[in-house]
Design a protein around this nucleic acid. Structure first.
Lengths: 353, 353
DNA sequence: GTCAGGGATGACAACGTTGTCAATTTGCAT
DNA sequence: ATGCAAATTGACAACGTTGTCATCCCTGAC
């Protein structure tokens, strides 16, 4: 029986070494191994080498449960979202995960219902139970001020991804996406093509991005001296069906729009479908623009003029910002402006007959 | 100084109660509280009530790190995938997560590179460091037998989601999706509409689903006495671009197909685009079918005939199966057969002129 | 040669929970 | 009442790590 003490007693497979085995092998104390693992100063180069050698030989990996149980530091952040758009969510996950891996953090995803009555408590429980260092909040949760206040009252560090034309400087750190500016650019593009009657289909009111996009549309019309026609603006949700319905309504008007700006690509896809159902040829009979640059916008026919959001980079920055703040530093809020992408769904209006 | 001992010493916020506080409040031992939390038998009803009352009063939540550190049981499973399709991944996550929540497990997502050279070691580390109870593997990882063998050698419990016409009974538990059967149904649908020259566009070879779908196509042609024309079969990947290219090639043939079966909806979307670029009217000049029932298939024009996969339910079953096996039981492998969904992209062929 | 100062190291307790096993109480037949 | 098995409860150690603090060793100044 020459197996080590820890090998005999463990219920994990025998090949799993602990810090204790490493210490024995390197002939140092537990604490010294811990120091090497955590990159602390005050370890002689020779000792460090011996420990690293032992770690390598034994294929040792620190146990995250034990680490987070004992340590004052935390080793994971939570990503909180309630968004029906898989492309958006996957991009956010990807961005957050890449930064977490780089920084040695874990990531806990937490899809949830933004309208749940006890959401703050739910998130508080999550943070406590899983010992999360903080939360990254995606829209629309990131825009519920009451929620933010409650989380802050619980002392939960957080960073938001929000829609705003400028840094809100309200004390809640954030990455802000200038939907207004991008919506302005899209509307301007349509105006410069010669459109005057431009329809607008709203997205969901629970997202701050909706009014922001509307404001960009409004502002562009105003700057180019075009009177906003109320009958060309239709409320709805960020969905294909609402895009379809909204477009049908607009196209049935006595003096229908020559272009329709859907608040996101799904809505614009609905517009494309409605146009086709109505026998209209896009872009010659009707120009259509979307927002988001989802893969759909590239693969539809015609491909959609839209605004490209660097969602993955936005999530990366948010995560980096959170981790920096946890460490006492602060790399500052940052703004992103989606970029106009012109494709085949927009063209000059057909001359009036 | 009348704060409890554990309140004074802790670095977590003071309102966070531990099992010790609950025990004191309920005037029982730590162990009894533990028993109540874990729903063990042998606790008197009156005692249980007192403990639950104390838990409620103190708003106590068990700490997952401590729990998983101490316990022989594990409390989280990993979800491993490398799949570019966000709709698929979100559905798998959703399914796995719903079962995990129901069973009191955590979920650790692990997107990775299926072609990474040391993938087995990477997953082994993940399991050890995060003390995962087991892994749910999505395609294509779930189909690398060498990987499965290595993971099994590491004693990592796993459940696969794979493409197969029947239970492989190879010792690795799984949920199997009968792509072959569904591809047969789609091909049969096209044949019954009157098509004889039916093109087939392959998906990526690293996915088992690709040959399975091809076999279904092949079998249906055979059963209906149609000779398989090699020039109508094109290799490629599960992508829009390969669908576009493949369709272009097929449509340029001297005797082009009257229907094209794309191995997934993305490919089919590429076919739609190629048809349009070639001035063909779908479905009158060309029928198109996809596979997967992604939202795109509903929103394209015309909407796609496809096969509906109950991805979320498949993931749920896989997760349930894993957890059942961890507990020593076994609820058995299960098969799912995607269901034919007929939409606007398929119609009888135009009569030859 | 002694001593201060700082770098390197280690002993030990603690994080919050559950597993083991022994002690106590209960219920029930005698 | 009494005895005995079963139900209930608790004391204590342990999981694998890091924080605190003490000790040791070395260097260089006196």
């Amino acid at each position: 029986m020459n197996r080590s003490e820890s090998e005999r007693k463990r219920n994990r497979p025998p090949e799993t070494a602990t810090i204790r085995d490493v210490a024995r092998q390197a002939r140092v104390s537990l604490k010294t191994v811990s120091r090497v693992i955590n990159g602390e100063a005050s370890v002689r180069e020779e000792t460090r080498a011996r420990v690293l050698q032992a770690i390598d030989t034994l294929d040792y990996r620190p146990d995250l449960s034990a680490r987070s149980l004992r340590s004052a530091r935390a080793y994971a952040v939570g990503l909180v979202y309630d968004n029906p758009n898989p492309y958006y969510i996957i991009a956010v996950q990807q961005g957050a995960l890449s930064v977490c891996r780089e920084m040695g953090f874990g990531l806990q995803i937490h899809p949830c219902d933004s309208k749940a009555p006890r959401l703050a408590e739910e998130l508080h429980d999550l943070v406590r139970r899983s010992r999360l260092a903080g939360l990254v909040l995606a829209p629309p949760m990131s825009e519920h001020v009451a929620l933010l206040r409650k989380l802050t009252a619980y002392d939960i560090p957080l960073v938001r991804i929000i829609s705003a034309a400028e840094d809100p400087r309200d004390g809640f750190p954030c990455v802000f996406v200038d939907d207004r500016d991008a919506a302005y650019a899209i509307t301007e593009h349509l105006i410069q093509l010669g459109h005057v009657r431009i329809g607008f289909l709203w997205g969901g009111k629970q997202h701050r991005s909706s009014p922001e996009r509307y404001k960009g549309y409004e502002q562009a019309l105003h700057d180019y001296g075009i009177k906003l026609a109320k009958e060309l603006v239709v409320e709805g949700d960020y969905s294909f069906d609402d895009g379809f319905r909204g477009a049908r309504r607009l196209l049935a008007l006595p003096d229908p729009p020559t272009a329709i700006f859907g608040s996101n690509d799904e809505i614009a896809a609905g517009v494309l479908a409605a146009a086709r159902a109505g026998g209209l040829h896009v872009p010659y009979d009707l120009s259509v623009a979307g927002f988001e640059d989802s893969p759909f916008s590239r693969h539809s026919w015609p491909s959609l003029t839209t605004a490209r959001q660097l969602t993955e980079q936005i999530a990366q920055h948010a995560t980096r910002l959170l981790i920096a703040r946890l460490r006492g530093g602060d790399i500052g809020n940052e703004g992103f402006s989606p970029e106009l992408v012109v494709r085949g769904s927009t063209a000059p209006p057909r001359p009036r007959h």
